[in-house]
Simulated assay, not measured.
Amino acid sequence: MTLAELLGAARRKLAESGVEDAALDARLLVEHFTGTSRSDAIARPDRTIDPRTVAEVEAALARRCRGEPVHRILGFREFYGLRLSLSAETLEPRPDTEVLVDAVLPFMRDVASREGECRVLDLGTGTGAIALALLANVPGAVATGVDISDDALATAARNAVDLGLADRFRPKKSDWFAEISDRYHVIASNPPYIGSNEIAALQKEVRLFDPLRALDGGDDGLEPYRIIAAGAASHLEQGGLVVVEIGSTQRLEVGSIFADAGFRLVRALSDLAGNDRVLVFATA
Score class of each variant (00 low, 15 high):
1 M>K: 12
3 L>Q: 10
4 A>Y: 04
6 L>G: 03
7 L>C: 00
10 A>K: 13
12 R>S: 11
14 L>T: 05
17 S>E: 03
19 V>K: 00
21 D>C: 00
21 D>N: 12
21 D>H: 15
22 A>W: 15
23 A>T: 13
24 L>P: 07
25 D>C: 07
28 L>Y: 02
28 L>E: 02
29 L>K: 01
42 I>D: 04
42 I>F: 06
45 P>R: 01
47 R>V: 01
49 I>R: 08
50 D>F: 04
50 D>R: 06
50 D>L: 12
54 V>I: 02
61 L>S: 09
63 R>T: 04
64 R>Y: 01
66 R>V: 02
66 R>S: 08
66 R>K: 05
72 R>C: 09
74 L>G: 06
75 G>V: 05
77 R>F: 13
78 E>F: 08
79 F>E: 00
82 L>T: 06
83 R>C: 08
83 R>Q: 01
93 P>R: 00
95 P>W: 02
95 P>F: 06
96 D>F: 07
98 E>F: 01
100 L>N: 10
103 A>G: 11
104 V>Y: 00
104 V>Q: 05
108 M>P: 13
108 M>I: 05
110 D>R: 10
110 D>H: 14
112 A>R: 13
115 E>Q: 09
116 G>W: 11
116 G>A: 09
120 V>M: 11
121 L>V: 09
123 L>H: 08
127 T>R: 02
129 A>C: 13
129 A>R: 11
129 A>Y: 09
134 L>M: 10
134 L>Y: 08
136 A>G: 09
138 V>P: 15
139 P>Y: 04
143 A>D: 05
144 T>N: 15
144 T>P: 12
147 D>F: 02
148 I>Q: 10
148 I>W: 05
148 I>T: 13
150 D>K: 10
154 A>D: 09
154 A>P: 14
158 R>I: 06
160 A>V: 05
160 A>S: 08
161 V>E: 15
164 G>E: 08
165 L>A: 11
168 R>H: 06
170 R>V: 07
170 R>C: 03
177 F>G: 01
178 A>Y: 03
180 I>Q: 12
180 I>T: 04
180 I>S: 04
182 D>S: 03
185 H>A: 02
186 V>I: 03
188 A>E: 02
188 A>G: 01
191 P>Q: 06
191 P>D: 06
191 P>M: 04
192 P>H: 12
193 Y>N: 07
196 S>Q: 11
199 I>W: 14
204 K>I: 14
207 R>N: 08
209 F>M: 15
210 D>A: 00
210 D>Y: 00
211 P>Y: 03
212 L>C: 11
213 R>N: 14
214 A>G: 00
216 D>H: 02
220 D>N: 05
221 G>L: 03
222 L>A: 03
224 P>V: 03
224 P>M: 01
225 Y>P: 07
225 Y>W: 09
228 I>K: 07
229 A>T: 01
230 A>S: 00
231 G>T: 00
235 H>K: 12
243 V>C: 11
244 V>N: 03
245 E>A: 06
247 G>K: 05
249 T>H: 12
249 T>Y: 14
250 Q>G: 15
251 R>T: 03
258 F>S: 12
259 A>L: 14
259 A>I: 14
259 A>E: 13
262 G>I: 11
267 R>E: 15
267 R>P: 12
272 L>I: 05
273 A>N: 04
275 N>R: 10
275 N>V: 13
276 D>V: 08
276 D>K: 04
276 D>T: 07
277 R>Y: 07
279 L>S: 03
282 A>K: 11
282 A>W: 04
283 T>N: 14
